[in-house]
Design a protein around this nucleic acid. Structure first.
Lengths: 142, 142
DNA sequence: CTCGATGCAAAACGTTTGCAGTCTT
DNA sequence: AAGACTGCAAACGTTTTGCATCGAG
Protein backbone atom coordinates (compact mmCIF):
# COMPACT_ATOMS: atom_id res chain seq x y z
CA UNK A 1 0.00 0.00 0.00
CA UNK A 2 1.65 3.25 -1.09
CA UNK A 3 -0.05 5.80 1.09
CA UNK A 4 1.14 8.77 3.07
CA UNK A 5 -0.26 10.69 6.02
CA UNK A 6 -1.81 13.34 3.82
CA UNK A 7 -3.77 10.79 1.80
CA UNK A 8 -4.75 8.93 4.92
CA UNK A 9 -6.06 12.05 6.61
CA UNK A 10 -8.15 12.88 3.56
CA UNK A 11 -9.51 9.34 3.48
CA UNK A 12 -10.48 9.44 7.10
CA UNK A 13 -12.11 12.84 6.82
CA UNK A 14 -14.01 11.88 3.70
CA UNK A 15 -15.53 9.03 5.66
CA UNK A 16 -16.32 11.22 8.67
CA UNK A 17 -13.69 9.57 10.86
CA UNK A 18 -11.43 11.54 13.13
CA UNK A 19 -7.68 11.50 12.81
CA UNK A 20 -5.74 10.64 15.94
CA UNK A 21 -2.03 10.01 16.38
CA UNK A 22 -2.79 6.43 17.41
CA UNK A 23 -4.72 5.80 14.22
CA UNK A 24 -2.03 7.28 12.04
CA UNK A 25 0.57 5.20 13.81
CA UNK A 26 -1.36 1.98 13.38
CA UNK A 27 -2.18 2.74 9.75
CA UNK A 28 1.37 3.56 8.87
CA UNK A 29 2.56 0.37 10.41
CA UNK A 30 -0.06 -1.95 8.97
CA UNK A 31 -0.26 -0.45 5.51
CA UNK A 32 3.49 -0.64 5.06
CA UNK A 33 3.78 -4.13 6.51
CA UNK A 34 4.59 -7.08 4.33
CA UNK A 35 4.66 -9.77 7.02
CA UNK A 36 0.91 -10.01 7.58
CA UNK A 37 1.03 -8.96 11.22
CA UNK A 38 -1.38 -10.16 13.88
CA UNK A 39 -3.31 -7.76 16.08
CA UNK A 40 -0.91 -8.57 18.89
CA UNK A 41 2.09 -7.76 16.74
CA UNK A 42 0.54 -4.48 15.67
CA UNK A 43 -0.22 -3.74 19.29
CA UNK A 44 3.27 -4.42 20.60
CA UNK A 45 4.83 -2.47 17.76
CA UNK A 46 2.64 0.57 18.20
CA UNK A 47 3.12 0.41 21.96
CA UNK A 48 6.74 1.43 21.47
CA UNK A 49 5.57 4.82 20.32
CA UNK A 50 2.30 5.14 22.25
CA UNK A 51 2.99 3.63 25.64
CA UNK A 52 -0.60 3.77 26.82
CA UNK A 53 -2.35 2.41 23.74
CA UNK A 54 -4.74 -0.44 24.36
CA UNK A 55 -5.56 -3.53 22.40
CA UNK A 56 -9.12 -2.21 22.08
CA UNK A 57 -7.90 0.74 20.05
CA UNK A 58 -5.85 -1.54 17.83
CA UNK A 59 -8.83 -3.79 17.15
CA UNK A 60 -11.09 -0.84 16.48
CA UNK A 61 -8.61 0.67 14.06
CA UNK A 62 -8.21 -2.67 12.30
CA UNK A 63 -11.99 -2.78 11.89
CA UNK A 64 -11.86 0.69 10.42
CA UNK A 65 -9.19 -0.27 7.92
CA UNK A 66 -11.19 -3.28 6.88
CA UNK A 67 -14.27 -1.13 6.47
CA UNK A 68 -12.34 1.27 4.28
CA UNK A 69 -11.04 -1.60 2.20
CA UNK A 70 -7.41 -0.83 2.96
CA UNK A 71 -6.62 -4.20 4.45
CA UNK A 72 -8.14 -7.63 4.45
CA UNK A 73 -8.21 -10.19 7.17
CA UNK A 74 -6.73 -13.54 6.38
CA UNK A 75 -8.66 -16.60 7.47
CA UNK A 76 -11.91 -14.78 7.89
CA UNK A 77 -14.49 -16.44 10.10
CA UNK A 78 -11.68 -17.33 12.41
CA UNK A 79 -13.74 -18.60 15.27
CA UNK A 80 -15.14 -21.08 15.53
CA UNK A 81 -13.04 -23.29 13.30
CA UNK A 82 -14.88 -25.35 10.75
CA UNK A 83 -13.91 -28.78 9.57
CA UNK A 84 -14.14 -30.49 6.22
CA UNK A 85 -13.85 -34.15 5.35
CA UNK A 86 -13.49 -33.39 1.65
CA UNK A 87 -9.82 -33.90 0.88
CA UNK A 88 -10.10 -33.27 -2.85
CA UNK A 89 -8.82 -30.01 -4.23
CA UNK A 90 -11.76 -27.65 -3.94
CA UNK A 91 -12.83 -24.11 -3.27
CA UNK A 92 -14.87 -23.29 -0.18
CA UNK A 93 -17.68 -20.99 -1.13
CA UNK A 94 -18.46 -19.10 2.06
CA UNK A 95 -21.59 -17.03 2.57
CA UNK A 96 -20.69 -14.09 4.79
CA UNK A 97 -24.34 -13.61 5.79
CA UNK A 98 -25.15 -17.05 7.18
CA UNK A 99 -21.67 -18.58 7.39
CA UNK A 100 -22.68 -21.58 5.32
CA UNK A 101 -19.88 -23.19 3.41
CA UNK A 102 -20.18 -25.34 0.33
CA UNK A 103 -17.45 -27.11 -1.54
CA UNK A 104 -16.88 -26.31 -5.18
CA UNK A 105 -14.87 -28.58 -7.42
CA UNK A 106 -14.18 -27.95 -11.08
CA UNK A 107 -11.55 -28.41 -13.75
CA UNK A 108 -10.62 -24.77 -13.43
CA UNK A 109 -9.82 -25.32 -9.77
CA UNK A 110 -7.92 -28.52 -10.35
CA UNK A 111 -5.90 -27.14 -13.22
CA UNK A 112 -5.03 -24.05 -11.22
CA UNK A 113 -3.76 -26.12 -8.37
CA UNK A 114 -1.59 -28.27 -10.63
CA UNK A 115 -0.14 -25.19 -12.30
CA UNK A 116 0.48 -23.46 -9.01
CA UNK A 117 2.07 -26.57 -7.62
CA UNK A 118 4.56 -26.79 -10.46
CA UNK A 119 5.30 -23.07 -10.10
CA UNK A 120 6.09 -23.70 -6.43
CA UNK A 121 8.49 -26.57 -6.96
CA UNK A 122 5.85 -29.22 -6.28
CA UNK A 123 6.18 -29.14 -2.55
CA UNK A 124 2.88 -27.80 -1.35
CA UNK A 125 1.81 -29.32 1.95
CA UNK A 126 -1.80 -28.29 1.81
CA UNK A 127 -4.12 -25.56 0.64
CA UNK A 128 -7.18 -23.64 1.54
CA UNK A 129 -9.07 -21.81 -1.17
CA UNK A 130 -11.94 -19.64 0.01
CA UNK A 131 -14.22 -17.35 -1.89
CA UNK A 132 -16.95 -15.25 -0.36
CA UNK A 133 -20.29 -15.13 -2.10
CA UNK A 134 -23.85 -14.64 -0.91
CA UNK A 135 -25.56 -18.02 -1.00
CA UNK A 136 -28.83 -18.64 -2.82
CA UNK A 137 -30.89 -18.80 0.35
CA UNK A 138 -29.60 -15.46 1.59
CA UNK A 139 -29.93 -13.70 -1.76
CA UNK A 140 -33.58 -14.76 -1.93
CA UNK A 141 -34.29 -13.37 1.54
CA UNK A 142 -33.20 -9.87 0.47
CA UNK B 1 -15.56 -39.58 3.07
CA UNK B 2 -16.84 -43.06 2.35
CA UNK B 3 -15.74 -44.94 5.41
CA UNK B 4 -17.37 -47.43 7.70
CA UNK B 5 -16.78 -48.51 11.27
CA UNK B 6 -14.72 -51.49 10.25
CA UNK B 7 -12.31 -49.38 8.21
CA UNK B 8 -12.17 -46.80 10.95
CA UNK B 9 -11.33 -49.35 13.60
CA UNK B 10 -8.52 -50.74 11.47
CA UNK B 11 -7.20 -47.24 10.87
CA UNK B 12 -7.20 -46.43 14.57
CA UNK B 13 -5.55 -49.69 15.52
CA UNK B 14 -2.90 -49.36 12.84
CA UNK B 15 -1.93 -46.04 14.39
CA UNK B 16 -1.99 -47.44 17.90
CA UNK B 17 -5.07 -45.48 18.93
CA UNK B 18 -7.85 -47.00 20.95
CA UNK B 19 -11.38 -47.29 19.67
CA UNK B 20 -14.06 -45.86 21.92
CA UNK B 21 -17.76 -45.37 21.25
CA UNK B 22 -17.29 -41.61 21.57
CA UNK B 23 -14.59 -41.62 18.91
CA UNK B 24 -16.64 -43.70 16.55
CA UNK B 25 -19.60 -41.44 17.06
CA UNK B 26 -17.61 -38.29 16.38
CA UNK B 27 -15.91 -39.81 13.36
CA UNK B 28 -19.12 -41.00 11.83
CA UNK B 29 -20.67 -37.61 12.22
CA UNK B 30 -17.75 -35.54 10.98
CA UNK B 31 -16.70 -37.79 8.14
CA UNK B 32 -20.20 -37.89 6.73
CA UNK B 33 -20.84 -34.18 7.21
CA UNK B 34 -21.07 -31.85 4.25
CA UNK B 35 -21.79 -28.64 6.11
CA UNK B 36 -18.32 -28.05 7.51
CA UNK B 37 -19.35 -28.24 11.15
CA UNK B 38 -17.68 -26.34 13.96
CA UNK B 39 -16.39 -28.07 17.08
CA UNK B 40 -19.41 -26.76 18.95
CA UNK B 41 -21.77 -28.22 16.38
CA UNK B 42 -20.02 -31.56 16.50
CA UNK B 43 -20.21 -31.43 20.28
CA UNK B 44 -23.90 -30.66 20.50
CA UNK B 45 -24.70 -33.29 17.91
CA UNK B 46 -22.70 -36.02 19.57
CA UNK B 47 -24.10 -35.03 22.95
CA UNK B 48 -27.49 -36.33 21.84
CA UNK B 49 -26.09 -39.83 21.86
CA UNK B 50 -23.41 -39.53 24.54
CA UNK B 51 -24.92 -37.30 27.21
CA UNK B 52 -21.76 -36.96 29.23
CA UNK B 53 -19.29 -36.27 26.45
CA UNK B 54 -17.12 -33.22 26.96
CA UNK B 55 -15.81 -30.63 24.59
CA UNK B 56 -12.32 -31.78 25.50
CA UNK B 57 -12.98 -35.17 23.97
CA UNK B 58 -14.39 -33.59 20.84
CA UNK B 59 -11.34 -31.39 20.42
CA UNK B 60 -9.00 -34.28 21.06
CA UNK B 61 -10.77 -36.45 18.51
CA UNK B 62 -10.70 -33.64 15.96
CA UNK B 63 -6.95 -33.41 16.48
CA UNK B 64 -6.72 -37.14 15.90
CA UNK B 65 -8.67 -36.93 12.67
CA UNK B 66 -6.47 -34.13 11.46
CA UNK B 67 -3.39 -36.13 12.35
CA UNK B 68 -4.71 -39.09 10.41
CA UNK B 69 -5.42 -36.87 7.42
CA UNK B 70 -9.12 -37.63 7.45
CA UNK B 71 -10.26 -34.06 7.84
CA UNK B 72 -8.77 -30.65 7.37
CA UNK B 73 -9.36 -27.52 9.34
CA UNK B 74 -10.57 -24.58 7.36
CA UNK B 75 -8.90 -21.27 8.01
CA UNK B 76 -5.91 -22.85 9.60
CA UNK B 77 -3.88 -20.66 11.90
CA UNK B 78 -7.17 -19.25 12.98
CA UNK B 79 -5.94 -17.33 15.93
CA UNK B 80 -4.48 -14.88 15.95
CA UNK B 81 -5.79 -13.29 12.78
CA UNK B 82 -3.28 -11.89 10.40
CA UNK B 83 -3.78 -8.85 8.24
CA UNK B 84 -2.66 -8.01 4.74
CA UNK B 85 -2.55 -4.67 2.98
CA UNK B 86 -2.05 -6.34 -0.41
CA UNK B 87 -5.42 -6.11 -2.14
CA UNK B 88 -4.29 -7.67 -5.41
CA UNK B 89 -5.32 -11.20 -6.22
CA UNK B 90 -2.62 -13.33 -4.67
CA UNK B 91 -1.87 -16.58 -2.92
CA UNK B 92 -0.65 -16.55 0.67
CA UNK B 93 2.22 -18.94 1.04
CA UNK B 94 2.17 -19.95 4.67
CA UNK B 95 4.99 -21.75 6.43
CA UNK B 96 3.50 -24.09 9.02
CA UNK B 97 6.78 -24.19 10.97
CA UNK B 98 7.31 -20.50 11.63
CA UNK B 99 3.93 -19.09 10.57
CA UNK B 100 5.52 -16.66 8.17
CA UNK B 101 3.33 -15.64 5.27
CA UNK B 102 4.44 -14.30 1.94
CA UNK B 103 2.31 -13.13 -0.92
CA UNK B 104 2.59 -14.82 -4.28
CA UNK B 105 1.24 -13.23 -7.42
CA UNK B 106 1.42 -14.76 -10.88
CA UNK B 107 -0.49 -15.05 -14.11
CA UNK B 108 -1.59 -18.52 -13.13
CA UNK B 109 -3.21 -17.10 -10.01
CA UNK B 110 -4.82 -14.21 -11.80
CA UNK B 111 -6.14 -16.32 -14.63
CA UNK B 112 -7.56 -18.84 -12.21
CA UNK B 113 -9.40 -16.16 -10.33
CA UNK B 114 -10.91 -14.72 -13.49
CA UNK B 115 -12.02 -18.16 -14.64
CA UNK B 116 -13.45 -19.05 -11.28
CA UNK B 117 -15.23 -15.73 -11.11
CA UNK B 118 -16.96 -16.31 -14.41
CA UNK B 119 -17.88 -19.83 -13.33
CA UNK B 120 -19.50 -18.35 -10.24
CA UNK B 121 -21.63 -15.75 -12.03
CA UNK B 122 -19.13 -12.95 -11.41
CA UNK B 123 -20.36 -12.11 -7.98
CA UNK B 124 -17.50 -13.02 -5.73
CA UNK B 125 -17.19 -10.70 -2.74
CA UNK B 126 -13.68 -11.62 -1.78
CA UNK B 127 -11.23 -14.45 -1.65
CA UNK B 128 -8.52 -16.01 0.39
CA UNK B 129 -6.10 -18.39 -1.25
CA UNK B 130 -3.66 -20.12 1.07
CA UNK B 131 -1.08 -22.75 0.40
CA UNK B 132 1.15 -24.31 3.01
CA UNK B 133 4.80 -24.78 2.20
CA UNK B 134 7.94 -24.84 4.31
CA UNK B 135 9.74 -21.54 3.80
CA UNK B 136 13.37 -21.31 2.73
CA UNK B 137 14.60 -20.31 6.16
CA UNK B 138 12.95 -23.27 7.84
CA UNK B 139 14.02 -25.79 5.22
CA UNK B 140 17.63 -24.69 5.70
CA UNK B 141 17.41 -25.15 9.46
CA UNK B 142 16.52 -28.82 9.04
C1' DC C 1 -3.36 -55.07 34.69
C1' DT C 2 -1.78 -51.18 32.16
C1' DC C 3 -1.87 -47.23 29.84
C1' DG C 4 -4.50 -44.46 27.02
C1' DA C 5 -9.10 -42.03 26.87
C1' DT C 6 -12.75 -39.57 29.12
C1' DG C 7 -14.82 -35.65 31.22
C1' DC C 8 -14.89 -32.23 34.60
C1' DA C 9 -13.28 -27.78 35.98
C1' DA C 10 -10.21 -24.27 35.46
C1' DA C 11 -7.13 -21.73 32.67
C1' DA C 12 -5.60 -19.72 28.46
C1' DC C 13 -6.14 -17.19 24.42
C1' DG C 14 -7.71 -13.75 21.10
C1' DT C 15 -11.26 -10.63 20.67
C1' DT C 16 -15.23 -7.58 21.97
C1' DT C 17 -17.81 -4.53 24.90
C1' DG C 18 -19.18 -0.88 28.50
C1' DC C 19 -17.99 3.12 30.14
C1' DA C 20 -15.61 7.20 32.10
C1' DG C 21 -12.51 10.45 30.64
C1' DT C 22 -10.05 12.73 26.67
C1' DC C 23 -9.23 14.92 22.32
C1' DT C 24 -10.46 16.19 17.46
C1' DT C 25 -13.13 19.08 14.93
C1' DA D 1 -19.05 22.45 22.91
C1' DA D 2 -20.36 18.12 20.93
C1' DG D 3 -19.48 13.85 19.89
C1' DA D 4 -16.06 10.65 18.39
C1' DC D 5 -11.99 8.24 20.23
C1' DT D 6 -9.12 6.21 23.83
C1' DG D 7 -7.97 2.89 27.15
C1' DC D 8 -9.03 0.37 31.12
C1' DA D 9 -11.26 -3.61 32.91
C1' DA D 10 -14.40 -6.99 32.53
C1' DA D 11 -16.84 -10.21 29.55
C1' DC D 12 -17.05 -13.28 25.82
C1' DG D 13 -16.56 -17.56 22.98
C1' DT D 14 -13.36 -20.95 21.57
C1' DT D 15 -9.78 -23.97 22.63
C1' DT D 16 -6.36 -26.16 25.79
C1' DT D 17 -4.71 -28.20 30.02
C1' DG D 18 -4.43 -30.84 34.61
C1' DC D 19 -6.02 -34.43 36.80
C1' DA D 20 -8.82 -38.08 38.83
C1' DT D 21 -11.51 -41.77 37.08
C1' DC D 22 -12.72 -45.11 33.61
C1' DG D 23 -12.34 -48.62 30.17
C1' DA D 24 -10.08 -50.82 25.87
C1' DG D 25 -6.58 -53.90 24.91
Amino acid sequence: MDINDEKLIKLFHSRGFKVTPQRLGICNYVLKSTDHPSAEKIYSNIKKKYKTISRATVYKTIALLKEMGLISELNLNTTPSRYDPNQNIHVNIICPKCNSISDYESEVVEEFFLNLKSELDNDILGQNLDVYKICETCSKKK
